[in-house]
């Protein structure tokens, strides 16, 4: 059981590592975007206010994209059929992917975070490592979201369409740019059901108010529940006897 998870995680890492250009993009693209955000914002105060939430968005976005496309390719290149005919369970497959892509999500988180802190030099409060742990939680959620949604996409084109559908509304509704409570009431109500709201709340509480992980238990619980539910739903999409 556990060795299957490791085997699948190891393979998904091997796959990305052998693709040099993708690896380079994984590291460079978030930095380019962070830099652009850094120079585009009018002043340091706005930057300090906005960047924490944008960090949450970037982690969600890249984790989602990377794991979603990889998982989808498993179907399009036919290896999923092979895996499903093998003794591995769907839990093995999902946790294997989660573990493999988590490493990339952590890598991206660290690169992005240290870049914004030491190169862009934003001011923040709170404990560095606690913030990183919270971001990794967002990374886990992103991987689960990617795996889950790739079950509904038949090909890469459809998967790419999910990005604007899933990510962009959350950016506007979940308090990344403007606080949630400045929106119409019905939108605030919708925001309550979107995971990014809790990611943004959590990271703002930490970086802007200096709170620790223990103070944002609710946000952590909601994000973790989302991750668990998405994984369970992804598992349903991988039932044996339904591969075609």
């Amino acid at each position: 059981m556990f060795s299957n998870i490791i085997t699948i995680a190891r393979r998904s890492i091997q796959q990305l590592v052998r693709d040099r250009r993708t690896i380079a993009l994984i590291i460079v693209v978030p930095l380019v975007i962070a830099s652009l955000i850094g120079v585009s914002l009018p002043n340091k105060a706005v930057l300090n206010q906005t960047l924490p939430a944008l960090l949450a968005v970037l982690i969600l976005f890249f984790g989602f994209l990377l794991s979603g496309i990889s998982f989808l390719r498993e179907r399009s290149q036919g290896t999923r059929e092979r895996l499903m005919a093998s003794p591995v369970s769907r839990g093995d497959i999902i946790f294997g992917y989660l573990l493999g892509f988590l490493l990339f999500a952590i890598l991206q988180t660290l690169v992005l975070f240290f870049y914004t802190v030491y190169i862009i030099k934003i001011d923040f409060m709170g404990d560095l490592w606690q913030i990183i742990i919270f971001q990794i939680l967002i990374g886990i959620l992103a991987v689960c979201l990617g795996i889950f949604l790739s079950a509904f996409a038949r090909n890469e084109f459809q998967m790419v369409q999910f990005i604007p559908l899933i990510i962009i509304p959350q950016v506007f509704i979940c308090g990344v740019l403007f606080p949630v409570n400045t929106q119409p009431e019905w939108l605030q109500w919708i925001a309550k059901f979107l995971p990014l709201t809790y990611g943004v709340d959590g990271i703002k509480a930490m970086m802007l108010e200096g709170k620790g992980l223990l103070d944002i238990g609710k946000e952590i619980a909601v994000l973790a529940s989302y991750a668990v539910v998405l994984m369970a739903l992804a598992g349903i999409s991988l039932r044996r006897g339904h591969v075609a």
């Binding site: 060795s3 299957n4 393979r11 796959q15 036919g78 059929e81 092979r82 895996l83 093998s86 003794p87």
Partner: peptide
């Protein structure tokens, strides 16, 4: 089970592909 279309991880080497399935099958 050998599916009709070669279902392989195209980025991986011949060795890595076969080694992966060897591990999966215990």
């Amino acid at each position: 089970y050998m599916p009709q279309l070669p279902s392989l991880y195209s980025e991986l080497t011949v060795y890595q592909n076969i080694d992966f399935f060897a591990r999966i099958y215990g």
